[in-house]
């Protein structure tokens, strides 16, 4: 089976690939949002910690 045949999906490419694409997008989004917020929160807490140490 050639690559183009694989991508063609027996004529069902317009349905199969969007399904997998949307799934990838949704699953990635669900991990990316908490990961990004976690980074932000940790950065904020670290800054606060440093300020407190400096003022001590």
């Amino acid at each position: 089976m050639s690559l183009s045949e694989f991508l063609h999906m027996g004529g069902y490419a317009p349905y199969v690939w969007p399904s997998y694409g949307i799934a990838a997008l949704v699953l990635w989004w669900n991990l990316w949002v908490p990961a990004r917020r976690l980074r932000q929160v940790r950065a904020r807490l670290r800054r606060r910690l440093r300020r407190e140490e400096a003022s001590r």
Binding site: M9, Y12, Y15
Partner: peptide
């Protein structure tokens, strides 16, 4: 799901959506 499984005899390759759905 996308490569090894053979196409469905009725639904062709469209059945591969099943692996997400």
């Amino acid at each position: 799901g996308l490569y090894l499984a053979p196409p469905d005899y009725q639904q062709g390759d469209s059945f591969r959506i099943m692996y997400i759905h």
